[in-house]
């Protein structure tokens, strides 16, 4: 069974993966399922989103339905059909 979610990628992630992506995922799904799909879109770009273990980089901001998801194991957060998952990489330059 598949269900769909909407993925929004901001700033640098928009350049790497596209701005808004309607994504069909094998269900049940977690944030990790989204990461796997993003890897298909841009395998090289994934290194900017995840660390060597395949987990989201700590600095990356993750939101589900505009609610910030904090703490460890964010990748295992379960999704519901129709969820909006957003990724933002804070910037540093001045």
């Amino acid at each position: 069974m598949k269900e769909s979610v909407r993925v929004r990628a901001f700033a640098r992630f928009r350049e790497l993966f596209g701005g808004t992506i309607e994504m069909d995922l094998p269900w049940p799904a977690t944030v990790r399922s989204v990461i796997r799909e993003l890897e298909k879109i841009n395998p090289a770009g994934l290194a900017e989103l995840v660390d060597n273990e395949g987990n989201l980089k700590k600095s990356v901001i993750l939101m589900i339905n505009r609610e910030r998801i904090m703490g460890p194991a964010r990748e295992d957060c379960p999704l519901r059909p129709g969820d909006e998952i957003a990724f933002y990489p804070p910037v540093a330059g001045g």
Binding site: F10, R14, E15, G19, I61, M63, R66, Y88
Partner: peptide, 18 residues
Amino acid sequence: ALHVWDGRAGTWDMIPVK
């Protein structure tokens, strides 16, 4: 909120913060 400007897409987005 972090207000995020993307000069390629010409968009402002808001990332809520608590």
